[in-house]
Write a protein that binds this DNA or RNA. Structure first.
Length: 552
RNA sequence: GGCGCCAUAGCCAAGUGGUAAGGCAAGGGUCUGCAAAACCCUCAUUCCCCGGUUCGAAUCCGGGUGGCGCCUCCA
């Protein structure tokens, strides 16, 4: 094992890379902000989770014992709001059907929807088509001046959240995300949350007011040092809702008094539920202690989520929350960050139906985790084509006798390059460069005339690829199976008639046997016109779907 | 308005003081009955523009221009 004190990580707090230097040598404690489970996760979430998945995998590859915690926020305004509108709403002779998956139907029109708890917005083609104010107490919606009453039983927020925890788990498996060591939920952490809030009150940085509890930002002078904001600037933009029981505009809720129909728990301040940020303070403290090594999340969590987390945790414990703050860059869709309020969001599940999971991972790894990444059909198609190259190479390598063996000097060089580049703040794109070198070498060996020598070298190379595979979460499938599955998917997407292809290939091979090459080439042309490429190999003729158009 | 990030070939993208990784596309070649795949070669005297520091800058500093993000829920 190479020296492991060379890993450097960019810390948002300092704005610079720093040595990893774990609190306990050889062990790394990682906390990643997981999904708020109000609906299906989108590909932007998926990118962030994949980034930290690779970070954890790499640290383990480097010999660290990693404790990886990624939470589920299953108690939250967005969940409550979503659960409240999901279901059937009737009136005016029409039915509004609001589905948990984020789609809605009004008559024969289809929409995506969002809600802020006060109104339901129906969106199509990125434009809000209708807004329906919600009358919570009366359980009615007003859509285009028609008053709609709920006609299906309301889903409670907790089971709505539980469903999307399961959906997330399914997506995570499909994306080959490692299971974290602990995946805590807010609903399982209420006592710890209450306890930390009590401590904040006793330290006089928090106060109870009308059943709510607020963190008093002015009592925590170090506030906003992660986002590097000036308190005066924040005050200028702070919102004060009339019903708020806050002392000062910047104060934020640790505990919210229960409103009718909301999930709630008993507390010293009456029935209520945690505010948005406190759960991460409680969960990280419960499973990783007062101070841990790495805290990850998307760029957009810096303010206010992580800022508030720091304030709560550090005010409560008096200790530094974490040594290094890592933030993943956004995934851009059509030149802009995906915006839920406009409904231009691609769900991970939909993306996985179109493109191979490992191709999606490869795409996520094609640039540095902190840089923006544009989600386009072309880049996805490129990723899948590249993955096909890797798998084709591995398939060929698998046909050789499985001879163990030491990695060649050449292989060692590529491995070293991969480690060097990953050591420098997990440079994914750099790692992919080293990967290309490795596969180039493998193909050279596979093409080599000196089979004995090649097979010996191939053994060591294959082991090296396997190691890298575990780091990147790529090439986890059987190569032949992957290639076949991809072909099947393309066949289905393009509506290709396989029996026709088989017949044409047979016809061509008959022609070839008869040395009628003119006819054989004609058949090749016919197949080409169908979007099929054929390969003559020593073991027969195989075919694939030409990748001449982006995967749709 | 406040704060911050980014700008490298036709496209995607590494590189943060020592003379431009890698991928796609393109052109040439090897192999092949012909192809495909694979492999080899070629493909940025130059890193948005203008100044400055330095023996030396894509990399540091100053000033522009262009794009994006956060400041409200967001991965």
């Amino acid at each position: 094992m190479a020296s492991v004190d060379t890993i450097r990580v960019y810390n948002t707090m300092s704005g610079a890379k720093q040595p990893l230097a774990p609190l306990t040598p050889g062990k790394v404690k990682v906390y990643v902000c997981g999904p708020t489970v109000y609906s299906f996760v989108h590909i932007g979430n998926a990118r962030t989770f994949t980034s930290f998945d690779v970070v954890v995998r790499y640290l383990r590859y480097r010999g660290f014992e990693v404790k990886y915690v990624r939470n589920y926020t299953d108690v939250d305004d967005k969940i409550i709001n979503a659960a409240r509108v999901v279901g059937e709403w009737g009136g005016a002779g029409q039915t509004l059907s609001v589905e948990a998956d984020g789609t809605a139907k009004w008559g024969d029109q289809s929409f995506k929807w969002t809600t802020d708890g006060h109104q339901l917005s129906l969106i199509s083609d990125g434009t809000v088509r209708a807004e329906a104010p919600i009358d919570v107490g009366a359980d009615t919606l007003t859509l285009q001046s028609a008053v709609l009453k709920r006609t299906s039983p309301e889903i409670d927020a907790i089971s709505h959240a539980a469903r999307f925890v399961r959906e997330f788990e399914q997506d995570a498996r499909a994306l080959h995300l490692l299971e974290p060591d602990v995946s805590p939920k807010v609903s399982d952490t209420i006592p710890e949350i209450v306890e930390i809030i009590q401590r904040l009150i006793s330290r006089e940085v928090a106060y109870a007011s009308k059943g709510d509890v607020y963190f008093q930002v002015s009592r925590y002078p170090q506030y906003a040092r992660l986002s590097k904001r000036k308190l005066d600037d924040l005050k200028a933009g702070a919102r004060v809702e009339p019903q708020d029981a806050k002392r000062e505009p910047l104060d934020f809720a640790l505990w919210k008094a229960a409103k009718p129909g909301e999930p709630s728990w008993d507390s010293p301040w009456g029935k209520g539920r945690p505010g948005w940020h406190i759960e991460c303070s409680a969960m990280s403290n419960k499973f990783l202690g007062e101070t841990f090594d790495l805290h990850g999340g998307g760029l957009d969590l810096i303010f206010p989520h992580h800022e508030n987390e720091i304030a709560q945790s550090e005010a409560a414990s008096g200790a530094e929350l974490c040594k290094c703050w890592m933030h993943g860059g956004f995934l851009d869709l059509e030149g802009a960050k995906m915006s839920k309020s406009l409904g231009n969001v691609v769900r991970l599940r939909d993306a996985l139906a179109r493109v191979d999971a490992e191709a999606l991972r490869y795409f996520f790894l094609s640039t540095h985790y902190r840089a923006p990444l544009a989600f386009t059909d072309q880049s996805l198609a490129d990723a899948e084509a590249r993955l096909e190259y890797f798998y084709e190479t591995l398939r060929r390598a698998n046909e050789r006798p499985a001879a163990g063996g030491k990695p060649s000097a050449e292989t060692e060089k590529w491995l070293q390059q991969l480690e060097q580049t990953m050591d420098d703040d997990f440079n994914f794109a750099g790692a992919l460069g080293a990967l290309s070198g490795l596969f180039g070498e493998m193909n050279q060996l596979l093409d080599s005339k000196d089979k004995g020598k090649a097979n010996a070298a191939l053994g060591g190379l294959r082991d090296s690829v396997k190691k890298i595979s575990s780091v990147l979460g790529l090439f986890e499938d059987d190569p032949a199976a992957w290639l076949l599955r991809r072909r099947d998917r393309l066949v289905q997407q393009r509506g290709i008639d396989v029996s026709k292809i088989d017949a044409l290939i047979t016809a061509r091979n008959d022609a070839r046997k008869a040395k009628d090459f003119k006819r054989a080439d004609e058949v090749r042309g016919e197949l080409k016109a169908l979007g099929i490429e054929i390969m003559d190999t020593p073991t027969g003729t195989s075919w694939k779907v030409a990748a001449d158009q982006p995967a749709k």
